[in-house]
Design a protein around this nucleic acid. Structure first.
Lengths: 152, 152
DNA sequence: TGATCTATTTATAACTG
DNA sequence: TCAGTTATAAATAGATC
Protein backbone atom coordinates (compact mmCIF):
# COMPACT_ATOMS: atom_id res chain seq x y z
CA UNK A 1 0.00 0.00 0.00
CA UNK A 2 1.51 3.26 -1.10
CA UNK A 3 1.38 6.48 0.77
CA UNK A 4 -1.24 8.88 -0.55
CA UNK A 5 0.27 11.16 -3.12
CA UNK A 6 -2.19 13.98 -2.47
CA UNK A 7 -4.87 15.00 -0.05
CA UNK A 8 -7.06 15.68 -3.06
CA UNK A 9 -9.47 18.52 -3.30
CA UNK A 10 -9.91 20.31 -0.02
CA UNK A 11 -12.97 22.14 1.10
CA UNK A 12 -12.56 25.90 1.14
CA UNK A 13 -14.69 28.68 2.50
CA UNK A 14 -16.30 30.99 -0.03
CA UNK A 15 -14.50 34.15 0.98
CA UNK A 16 -11.75 36.27 -0.52
CA UNK A 17 -8.60 34.20 -0.95
CA UNK A 18 -5.72 35.87 0.85
CA UNK A 19 -2.75 34.17 -0.75
CA UNK A 20 -2.03 36.09 -3.92
CA UNK A 21 -0.67 33.14 -5.83
CA UNK A 22 -3.49 30.73 -5.11
CA UNK A 23 -5.97 33.49 -5.85
CA UNK A 24 -4.50 33.80 -9.31
CA UNK A 25 -4.51 30.06 -9.87
CA UNK A 26 -8.06 29.74 -8.59
CA UNK A 27 -9.19 32.64 -10.76
CA UNK A 28 -7.83 31.03 -13.91
CA UNK A 29 -9.24 27.61 -13.14
CA UNK A 30 -12.66 28.81 -12.10
CA UNK A 31 -12.97 31.28 -14.94
CA UNK A 32 -12.30 28.43 -17.37
CA UNK A 33 -14.82 26.31 -15.50
CA UNK A 34 -17.43 29.06 -15.61
CA UNK A 35 -17.02 29.56 -19.36
CA UNK A 36 -17.24 25.82 -19.93
CA UNK A 37 -20.49 25.66 -17.97
CA UNK A 38 -21.82 28.56 -19.99
CA UNK A 39 -20.92 26.85 -23.24
CA UNK A 40 -22.61 23.65 -22.09
CA UNK A 41 -25.75 25.50 -21.01
CA UNK A 42 -25.98 27.23 -24.33
CA UNK A 43 -25.43 24.01 -26.29
CA UNK A 44 -27.68 21.80 -24.22
CA UNK A 45 -30.56 24.23 -24.02
CA UNK A 46 -30.12 26.47 -27.04
CA UNK A 47 -29.83 29.44 -24.70
CA UNK A 48 -28.01 32.66 -25.45
CA UNK A 49 -25.36 33.47 -22.90
CA UNK A 50 -22.96 36.34 -22.35
CA UNK A 51 -20.39 36.56 -19.59
CA UNK A 52 -17.98 39.34 -18.82
CA UNK A 53 -15.37 38.85 -16.10
CA UNK A 54 -12.89 41.38 -14.86
CA UNK A 55 -10.04 40.04 -12.81
CA UNK A 56 -8.91 41.95 -9.72
CA UNK A 57 -5.93 43.00 -11.84
CA UNK A 58 -8.29 44.67 -14.28
CA UNK A 59 -8.04 42.21 -17.14
CA UNK A 60 -11.31 41.58 -18.95
CA UNK A 61 -12.43 38.19 -20.22
CA UNK A 62 -15.61 37.44 -22.04
CA UNK A 63 -17.70 34.61 -23.37
CA UNK A 64 -20.68 34.94 -25.64
CA UNK A 65 -22.96 32.68 -27.59
CA UNK A 66 -23.89 33.68 -30.18
CA UNK A 67 -21.97 36.80 -29.13
CA UNK A 68 -21.51 39.04 -26.13
CA UNK A 69 -22.78 42.08 -27.97
CA UNK A 70 -25.94 40.54 -29.35
CA UNK A 71 -26.93 39.26 -25.93
CA UNK A 72 -26.14 42.60 -24.31
CA UNK A 73 -28.11 44.38 -27.01
CA UNK A 74 -31.14 42.27 -26.30
CA UNK A 75 -30.68 42.77 -22.58
CA UNK A 76 -30.59 46.52 -23.01
CA UNK A 77 -33.38 46.88 -25.53
CA UNK A 78 -35.68 44.22 -24.13
CA UNK A 79 -38.46 45.22 -21.77
CA UNK A 80 -36.53 43.41 -19.09
CA UNK A 81 -34.23 46.28 -18.21
CA UNK A 82 -35.04 49.53 -20.02
CA UNK A 83 -32.95 51.88 -17.95
CA UNK A 84 -31.40 53.47 -21.00
CA UNK A 85 -32.80 54.30 -24.38
CA UNK A 86 -30.14 52.47 -26.30
CA UNK A 87 -32.57 51.61 -29.06
CA UNK A 88 -32.82 55.29 -29.94
CA UNK A 89 -29.06 55.60 -29.81
CA UNK A 90 -28.78 52.67 -32.15
CA UNK A 91 -31.21 54.19 -34.66
CA UNK A 92 -29.47 57.55 -34.47
CA UNK A 93 -26.18 55.87 -35.26
CA UNK A 94 -27.73 54.43 -38.38
CA UNK A 95 -28.64 57.96 -39.43
CA UNK A 96 -25.12 59.11 -38.80
CA UNK A 97 -23.86 56.41 -41.08
CA UNK A 98 -24.25 58.45 -44.25
CA UNK A 99 -22.35 61.38 -42.87
CA UNK A 100 -19.60 59.12 -41.68
CA UNK A 101 -19.33 57.61 -45.13
CA UNK A 102 -19.08 61.05 -46.73
CA UNK A 103 -16.24 61.93 -44.41
CA UNK A 104 -14.53 58.74 -45.33
CA UNK A 105 -14.96 59.42 -49.03
CA UNK A 106 -13.33 62.83 -48.54
CA UNK A 107 -10.18 60.93 -47.72
CA UNK A 108 -9.86 61.26 -44.01
CA UNK A 109 -6.52 59.75 -43.19
CA UNK A 110 -6.85 58.07 -39.83
CA UNK A 111 -10.22 56.60 -40.51
CA UNK A 112 -10.06 54.01 -37.78
CA UNK A 113 -10.10 56.60 -35.05
CA UNK A 114 -13.76 57.08 -35.76
CA UNK A 115 -14.54 53.41 -35.60
CA UNK A 116 -16.77 52.80 -32.67
CA UNK A 117 -19.84 50.67 -32.31
CA UNK A 118 -21.80 53.72 -31.35
CA UNK A 119 -21.44 55.30 -34.78
CA UNK A 120 -21.11 52.14 -36.80
CA UNK A 121 -23.68 50.10 -38.59
CA UNK A 122 -23.28 46.42 -39.27
CA UNK A 123 -22.12 47.19 -42.79
CA UNK A 124 -19.19 49.24 -41.62
CA UNK A 125 -18.46 46.78 -38.88
CA UNK A 126 -18.05 44.18 -41.57
CA UNK A 127 -15.89 46.57 -43.57
CA UNK A 128 -13.62 47.03 -40.59
CA UNK A 129 -13.55 43.34 -40.06
CA UNK A 130 -12.57 42.91 -43.70
CA UNK A 131 -9.64 45.27 -43.19
CA UNK A 132 -8.52 43.19 -40.25
CA UNK A 133 -8.86 40.12 -42.44
CA UNK A 134 -6.49 41.66 -44.98
CA UNK A 135 -4.05 42.47 -42.22
CA UNK A 136 -4.40 38.96 -40.95
CA UNK A 137 -3.82 37.46 -44.37
CA UNK A 138 -0.77 39.57 -44.92
CA UNK A 139 0.55 38.55 -41.54
CA UNK A 140 -0.07 34.93 -42.48
CA UNK A 141 -2.20 34.26 -39.48
CA UNK A 142 -4.82 31.64 -40.18
CA UNK A 143 -8.44 31.27 -39.23
CA UNK A 144 -9.52 34.69 -38.12
CA UNK A 145 -13.30 34.82 -38.23
CA UNK A 146 -15.94 37.26 -37.17
CA UNK A 147 -17.42 34.93 -34.62
CA UNK A 148 -14.03 34.57 -32.96
CA UNK A 149 -14.43 38.19 -31.97
CA UNK A 150 -17.95 37.73 -30.76
CA UNK A 151 -19.14 40.32 -33.25
CA UNK A 152 -21.92 38.28 -34.76
CA UNK B 1 -28.31 -5.42 -0.07
CA UNK B 2 -31.21 -3.33 -1.28
CA UNK B 3 -32.05 -2.67 -4.82
CA UNK B 4 -30.67 0.65 -5.99
CA UNK B 5 -33.25 3.39 -5.74
CA UNK B 6 -31.72 5.40 -8.58
CA UNK B 7 -29.10 5.10 -11.24
CA UNK B 8 -27.79 8.46 -10.09
CA UNK B 9 -26.36 11.02 -12.39
CA UNK B 10 -25.97 9.75 -15.90
CA UNK B 11 -23.49 10.90 -18.44
CA UNK B 12 -25.02 12.97 -21.22
CA UNK B 13 -23.62 14.27 -24.48
CA UNK B 14 -23.22 18.01 -24.79
CA UNK B 15 -25.72 18.56 -27.56
CA UNK B 16 -29.16 20.09 -27.81
CA UNK B 17 -31.57 18.23 -25.52
CA UNK B 18 -34.49 16.98 -27.54
CA UNK B 19 -37.03 16.25 -24.80
CA UNK B 20 -38.71 19.55 -24.10
CA UNK B 21 -39.40 18.83 -20.46
CA UNK B 22 -35.91 17.71 -19.49
CA UNK B 23 -34.52 20.66 -21.44
CA UNK B 24 -36.55 22.97 -19.24
CA UNK B 25 -35.43 21.21 -16.06
CA UNK B 26 -31.82 21.15 -17.15
CA UNK B 27 -31.95 24.82 -18.08
CA UNK B 28 -33.19 25.84 -14.64
CA UNK B 29 -30.71 23.69 -12.76
CA UNK B 30 -27.71 24.64 -14.83
CA UNK B 31 -28.58 28.30 -14.90
CA UNK B 32 -28.67 28.23 -11.09
CA UNK B 33 -25.39 26.34 -11.07
CA UNK B 34 -23.79 28.84 -13.43
CA UNK B 35 -24.87 31.81 -11.31
CA UNK B 36 -23.60 30.10 -8.18
CA UNK B 37 -20.20 29.54 -9.81
CA UNK B 38 -20.14 33.16 -10.83
CA UNK B 39 -20.94 34.32 -7.31
CA UNK B 40 -18.19 32.09 -5.92
CA UNK B 41 -15.66 33.33 -8.45
CA UNK B 42 -16.46 36.90 -7.62
CA UNK B 43 -16.27 36.31 -3.86
CA UNK B 44 -13.16 34.13 -3.89
CA UNK B 45 -11.17 36.31 -6.24
CA UNK B 46 -12.70 39.75 -5.89
CA UNK B 47 -13.56 39.66 -9.58
CA UNK B 48 -16.37 41.57 -11.23
CA UNK B 49 -18.74 39.33 -13.13
CA UNK B 50 -21.79 39.88 -15.28
CA UNK B 51 -23.88 37.16 -16.85
CA UNK B 52 -26.88 37.48 -19.09
CA UNK B 53 -28.81 34.38 -20.12
CA UNK B 54 -31.74 34.19 -22.46
CA UNK B 55 -33.73 31.00 -22.39
CA UNK B 56 -34.91 29.48 -25.66
CA UNK B 57 -38.35 30.76 -24.66
CA UNK B 58 -36.97 34.29 -24.65
CA UNK B 59 -36.90 34.89 -20.93
CA UNK B 60 -33.90 36.89 -19.74
CA UNK B 61 -31.98 36.17 -16.54
CA UNK B 62 -29.01 38.05 -15.25
CA UNK B 63 -26.37 37.99 -12.56
CA UNK B 64 -23.96 40.77 -11.75
CA UNK B 65 -21.41 41.62 -9.12
CA UNK B 66 -21.28 44.46 -8.30
CA UNK B 67 -23.93 44.87 -10.99
CA UNK B 68 -24.58 43.84 -14.57
CA UNK B 69 -24.65 47.42 -15.76
CA UNK B 70 -21.37 48.48 -14.21
CA UNK B 71 -19.53 45.51 -15.69
CA UNK B 72 -21.11 46.05 -19.10
CA UNK B 73 -20.17 49.70 -18.96
CA UNK B 74 -16.55 48.82 -18.29
CA UNK B 75 -16.67 46.35 -21.13
CA UNK B 76 -18.21 48.80 -23.58
CA UNK B 77 -16.09 51.82 -22.79
CA UNK B 78 -12.92 49.77 -22.88
CA UNK B 79 -12.04 51.26 -19.55
CA UNK B 80 -10.09 48.31 -18.34
CA UNK B 81 -6.46 47.64 -17.57
CA UNK B 82 -6.45 50.89 -15.53
CA UNK B 83 -3.11 50.11 -13.98
CA UNK B 84 -1.40 49.47 -17.29
CA UNK B 85 -0.22 51.80 -19.97
CA UNK B 86 -0.89 49.24 -22.69
CA UNK B 87 -3.70 51.29 -24.10
CA UNK B 88 -1.36 54.25 -24.50
CA UNK B 89 1.19 51.95 -26.08
CA UNK B 90 -1.38 50.79 -28.60
CA UNK B 91 -2.23 54.36 -29.50
CA UNK B 92 1.44 55.28 -29.83
CA UNK B 93 2.13 52.43 -32.20
CA UNK B 94 -0.93 53.39 -34.12
CA UNK B 95 0.69 56.77 -34.71
CA UNK B 96 3.81 55.01 -35.88
CA UNK B 97 1.73 53.05 -38.31
CA UNK B 98 0.23 56.27 -39.55
CA UNK B 99 3.78 57.32 -40.48
CA UNK B 100 4.36 53.99 -42.10
CA UNK B 101 1.24 54.47 -44.11
CA UNK B 102 2.25 57.90 -45.34
CA UNK B 103 5.63 56.60 -46.47
CA UNK B 104 4.12 53.72 -48.32
CA UNK B 105 0.90 55.25 -49.50
CA UNK B 106 2.00 56.82 -52.81
CA UNK B 107 -1.57 57.16 -53.94
CA UNK B 108 -2.68 53.87 -52.61
CA UNK B 109 -5.48 54.04 -50.08
CA UNK B 110 -5.31 50.49 -48.82
CA UNK B 111 -1.90 50.82 -47.21
CA UNK B 112 -2.26 47.62 -45.27
CA UNK B 113 -2.17 45.56 -48.43
CA UNK B 114 1.55 46.20 -48.49
CA UNK B 115 2.00 44.65 -45.11
CA UNK B 116 3.57 41.28 -45.48
CA UNK B 117 5.60 39.13 -43.17
CA UNK B 118 8.36 38.99 -45.74
CA UNK B 119 9.12 42.68 -45.45
CA UNK B 120 8.18 43.08 -41.84
CA UNK B 121 10.46 42.66 -38.89
CA UNK B 122 9.20 41.47 -35.55
CA UNK B 123 8.99 45.08 -34.48
CA UNK B 124 6.66 45.98 -37.30
CA UNK B 125 4.74 42.78 -36.82
CA UNK B 126 4.08 43.87 -33.29
CA UNK B 127 3.12 47.30 -34.56
CA UNK B 128 0.61 45.79 -36.91
CA UNK B 129 -0.70 43.67 -34.10
CA UNK B 130 -1.03 46.84 -32.06
CA UNK B 131 -3.07 48.43 -34.82
CA UNK B 132 -5.35 45.45 -34.76
CA UNK B 133 -5.56 45.90 -31.02
CA UNK B 134 -6.69 49.46 -31.57
CA UNK B 135 -9.27 48.29 -34.06
CA UNK B 136 -10.33 45.72 -31.57
CA UNK B 137 -10.65 48.33 -28.86
CA UNK B 138 -12.66 50.57 -31.13
CA UNK B 139 -14.89 47.66 -31.99
CA UNK B 140 -15.30 47.06 -28.27
CA UNK B 141 -14.06 43.53 -28.43
CA UNK B 142 -11.87 42.63 -25.46
CA UNK B 143 -8.95 40.31 -25.02
CA UNK B 144 -7.39 40.02 -28.42
CA UNK B 145 -3.94 38.56 -27.97
CA UNK B 146 -1.19 37.38 -30.26
CA UNK B 147 -1.42 33.82 -29.09
CA UNK B 148 -5.11 33.74 -29.97
CA UNK B 149 -4.03 33.91 -33.58
CA UNK B 150 -1.61 31.05 -33.25
CA UNK B 151 1.31 33.34 -33.99
CA UNK B 152 3.35 32.55 -30.94
C1' DT C 1 4.95 29.88 -15.84
C1' DG C 2 1.63 26.22 -17.03
C1' DA C 3 0.37 21.30 -17.50
C1' DT C 4 -0.70 17.15 -15.02
C1' DC C 5 -2.09 14.28 -11.01
C1' DT C 6 -4.93 12.67 -7.02
C1' DA C 7 -8.32 12.61 -3.70
C1' DT C 8 -11.97 14.87 -2.58
C1' DT C 9 -15.85 18.08 -2.94
C1' DT C 10 -19.47 19.71 -5.76
C1' DA C 11 -22.86 19.52 -9.43
C1' DT C 12 -26.40 17.27 -11.47
C1' DA C 13 -29.36 13.34 -14.38
C1' DA C 14 -32.88 10.58 -13.38
C1' DC C 15 -36.26 9.68 -10.28
C1' DT C 16 -40.01 10.34 -6.70
C1' DG C 17 -43.79 12.75 -4.11
C1' DT D 1 -44.11 22.83 -11.83
C1' DC D 2 -41.31 22.62 -7.60
C1' DA D 3 -38.66 20.47 -3.94
C1' DG D 4 -36.10 16.43 -2.30
C1' DT D 5 -33.15 11.92 -3.06
C1' DT D 6 -29.57 9.06 -4.82
C1' DA D 7 -25.79 7.63 -7.30
C1' DT D 8 -22.72 9.02 -10.37
C1' DA D 9 -20.21 12.49 -13.36
C1' DA D 10 -17.54 16.52 -13.26
C1' DA D 11 -14.90 20.21 -11.12
C1' DT D 12 -11.17 21.52 -8.55
C1' DA D 13 -7.60 22.42 -4.16
C1' DG D 14 -3.30 21.35 -3.38
C1' DA D 15 0.74 19.17 -4.86
C1' DT D 16 4.20 18.03 -8.19
C1' DC D 17 6.68 18.27 -12.47
Amino acid sequence: MEKKRSRGRQKIAIEKISKKKSLQVTFSKRRAGLFKKARELSTLCGAEVAIIVESPAGKVFSFGNPSVDSVIHRYETGDFCPQEDSRKKYLDSMEDLEEHKKEKAMGKSNWWEDLCVENLGLEELEESMAAMQVLRNNLLIPNLTLDQFGVL
